[in-house]
Design a protein around this nucleic acid. Structure first.
Lengths: 220, 220
DNA sequence: TTCGCCAACATTGTCGCCAATCCTTGCGTC
DNA sequence: GACGCAAGGATTGGCGACAATGTTGGCGAA
């Protein structure tokens, strides 16, 4: 209910507004998104809102049924697991590609992130670790140079940021995932594609195993 | 230039019309898609065409640049390879899942497709083999019960049907891929997830190796 | 009382028009 | 002759209004 009344006329802006609103929980899962309401809410025309909802539907963030309106798509635990399973294999591919194609500068960047992760865990800074986690996966995607895979992953990531976020807050999670992350970086730095893929898959398999613990309880 | 003047007013219909037109080569890659032209072409309103183009952009079939219009997205050979690489790992996941979750009826269906493939190759029926190929991959997706992966694959398939089609026409291609397909079915029927995944990945790796031979020459 | 029908409401889908933006072409100048 | 610039045309983006559709509530009859 917090006032997000930042008025932005263009359609692309409405997309960003609604997307971040969903990610940050301003819009709850299954909440109806009435075009007219969002129109006055954001100070944009209904056509702009309509276009934005169409775009977000394509991104998999909102659901639309013919003549019945749009609502925030709720991703069940089962679907979150499926998403992570696909992420597992695709990010595994990216890790392998990264091990093959990384430049020395790329490797330095990865090592830097790994070092930051160590420090964050030592300092118990969960938020910094979560951010570094995001940066590591993004770096692997970038280094891999696999644009199609990057697009797929970006899409999937947008759909379960909520679950990811709750996972990061799980106590003791960092100490479990840290060695996995370090192994990924090590394998890529060793330019060993198969080991890198295996490490990435093992990491995400661990995420999948942990997901049920975070459950599908609302965060409120 | 063939007359596709089947008039259909609703936006969803325009999506289907344009999609099949692109798939069948009515619209060449990089061809501009002017909203007004398509509007009179299909007998739909410009808003409907606009919505349809938005949808197709999300599907990755058309490209849109701000205030510069839409055009049929051309997938380069490099991108086709990337698509197949992602398909390789995701369909590998599906094959593994299928090996775990298939019912006896599912296995019968797979064996039936495999038998049909053998006959098609013996008879030299390239078209039937191509159709069975499509059905086999679709069956694996379905049996796997992995809806997220299925969605990703459907998306990717739509983007390089052209390349896939040209690949199927390559002489001698069927005799290379037939044993790979049979191995996939065998592995799933043996309920061996790792072998199924390996078989699927080997098959698509073979596809990737063959792709450069088909080149990116226009088919006209 | 309960079931079924009907009407009013709420919401989305569609259309045509106007403004904003980009590309092209022609002209003038160096 | 080539470059820069401005006017014109072409095309997309945005907006309001109207039509179509699904939903909800009320009313009457069995």
């Amino acid at each position: 209910m917090s006032a997000v009344t930042s008025t932005a006329g263009t359609a692309e802006d409405v997309v960003d507004l609604v997307r971040t609103a969903i990610h940050q929980g301003e819009f709850a899962p299954n909440q109806r998104l009435v075009e007219a309401d969002l129109s006055v809410w954001f100070g944009a025309s209904r056509a702009a809102v309509r276009t934005a909802l169409l775009q977000l539907t394509a991104e998999g963030l909102v659901e639309r049924v013919q003549n019945r309106g749009a609502r925030v798509r709720a991703v069940s635990l089962e679907e979150a697991i499926e998403i992570c399973e696909v992420r597992m294999v695709v990010e595994g591919l990216c890790a392998a590609k990264a091990a093959q194609r990384a430049s020395e500068d790329d490797l330095d960047g990865l090592r830097e992130i790994a070092a930051g992760m160590r420090h964050a865990v030592e300092a118990g800074d969960v938020f910094a670790y979560s951010e570094l986690n995001r940066r590591l996966h993004a770096a692997v995607r970038t280094v891999a140079g696999q644009h199609v895979a990057a697009g797929v992953l970006e899409r999937l990531r947008g759909q379960n940021v909520r679950h990811q976020f709750r996972l990061a807050l799980l106590p003791g999670r960092a100490s479990v995932s840290l060695p996995q992350h370090l192994e990924i970086v090590d394998a890529i730095c060793a330019r060993d594609p198969e080991r890198a893929e295996a490490a990435m898959r093992a990491h995400l398999a661990s995420v999948i195993d942990t997901l049920p613990q975070v459950g599908s309880s609302p965060v409120h």
